[in-house]
């Protein structure tokens, strides 16, 4: 098992009602799998929202396998002006 911290921003925070959460996951879990889990927890509130992902404060363009202690940030694009 691995323990990871999730950082939620903008619509993700809004949809989950939390800025941070800690998840215990199977070893070998990928960022893509965590994103699916987050979307499921959001009860369809993130269905039209695309998410960029950063692991340990570094943007990633492709899914990767997570390690124990990793911090994963889900960042939606925002509008506003």
């Amino acid at each position: 098992m691995i323990k990871i911290k999730i950082k939620c921003f903008s619509q993700v925070k809004y949809a989950l009602g939390k800025k941070e959460l800690v998840l215990e996951l199977e070893s070998g879990t990928t960022t893509q799998e965590v994103e699916r889990l987050i979307r499921k927890k959001a009860n369809r509130n993130l269905d039209i929202v695309s998410l960029s992902v950063a692991v340990n404060k570094k943007y990633i363009s492709k899914s990767l396998v997570l390690n124990d202690g990793d911090e994963v940030a889900f960042i939606p694009p925002v509008q506003g002006g």
């Binding site: 921003f9 903008s10 619509q11 925070k13 925002v78």
Partner: peptide
């Protein structure tokens, strides 16, 4: 770039 969402900004 600057963007906004409620109390947050990028």
């Amino acid at each position: 770039y600057g963007g906004l969402f409620q109390y947050e900004g990028q």
